[in-house]
Design a protein around this nucleic acid. Sequence first.
DNA 1: CGAACCGGTTAATGATGACTAACATCCAGG
DNA 2: CCTGGATGTTAGTCATCATTAACCGGTTCG
Lengths: 198, 198
Amino acid sequence: MTVMRSPTRVPSPRRREILDAAATLFAARGFHGTSIEEIGGAVGISGPALYRHFSGKVSLLSEMLLDISERLRGSAVERVTRAETAAEALDALIGGQIDFALDHPALITVHDRELGNVPEPARRQIRRLQRLYVEEWVTVLSELYPDVPPPGLRAATHAVFGLLNSTPHSAGELPREAMAALLHRMARAALFGLVNQY
Amino acid sequence: MTVMRSPTRVPSPRRREILDAAATLFAARGFHGTSIEEIGGAVGISGPALYRHFSGKVSLLSEMLLDISERLRGSAVERVTRAETAAEALDALIGGQIDFALDHPALITVHDRELGNVPEPARRQIRRLQRLYVEEWVTVLSELYPDVPPPGLRAATHAVFGLLNSTPHSAGELPREAMAALLHRMARAALFGLVNQY
DNA sequence: CGAACCGGTTAATGATGACTAACATCCAGG
DNA sequence: CCTGGATGTTAGTCATCATTAACCGGTTCG
């Protein structure tokens, strides 16, 4: 048995290509609705050739979700660190999530649909990264809205994710920049609504 | 061949029971990840007995999504009709969506994950109902925000759906009433953000 | 009574699909 | 050269699963 290369090292272009194609297919037809044959076909090789790159269908999914979670979390940490005020940090977080959602709609879709198909070793790690990402938001928000208790901030964070991740549903309604601006304003306003009523 | 009872008439308790169980399973494991055997097992009968009630797995899903879309659309029309002002109508729409999402998280989850598995005759009808539901919102919103062009209002509507439908993700963070209130405030504020910035 | 339907049961059947085996090609380095 | 690894290929294999068949016990109502 050839030991599979550790998830994030040396992103052989072929692996990336496969992951990208698989993400699109998973987003469209779902994990169980997509066959190994289809994924291979999407990158010009056929079926079992995938096993030269991944140890199986679920490990492909695990790696995909792990990668997404790492990117979201990593970029969040980076942006928050760079920011000088909490308000600035929040805008950076919102902007980062919007960019990711607009650039990779398939990844966003797979990210919150398919965690249930990842088996336990990897599952926990993905959840951990997701939790860390949420806490990044909660930390910033608790500075801006100190009167809202953490559970409320967590629920609000998920609500904002739902709002921002809606882009795959309204694809094509607006040009990208307009969509980004609209989502940014709505997200900021939604959070502002935590403490002010109209 | 016994002709299947027309979708929405005489909701035989057994059918409802099966649809409910299936919704929970579909939400948890996905359509393709759920077997006929599991659905039967969840209501105490086993496997092929389902064919006494539905003509097949996909028709079960079709009926489920059709029912959800009809209920959402129907309740929206009703609420908007009853309202006296546009602002009141909007609050009624928001409240209706929140109640539905909190009362039937599985249905909400299935509703926007599994349309892709419904084959073409029913698919179009479901999409039609969804579109009508969205337009119900857009009509109300265009009265409140006449300066925002329809595509923007549609995108905003989808964004608000994403926000409100986030409850399955933040399950248990807050007691139901607190969650409902928080989502309502955030949704109203998010829409207000369409025209005012902070 | 008894025929017919209703709602179940268990045992095929037939596809589909993940994964493995056995075999080919290409290319790098010794 | 020629050997070995990396990457493909095609042809199994073995499960799983939706769907159908064949059969059965009630209940209704004519």
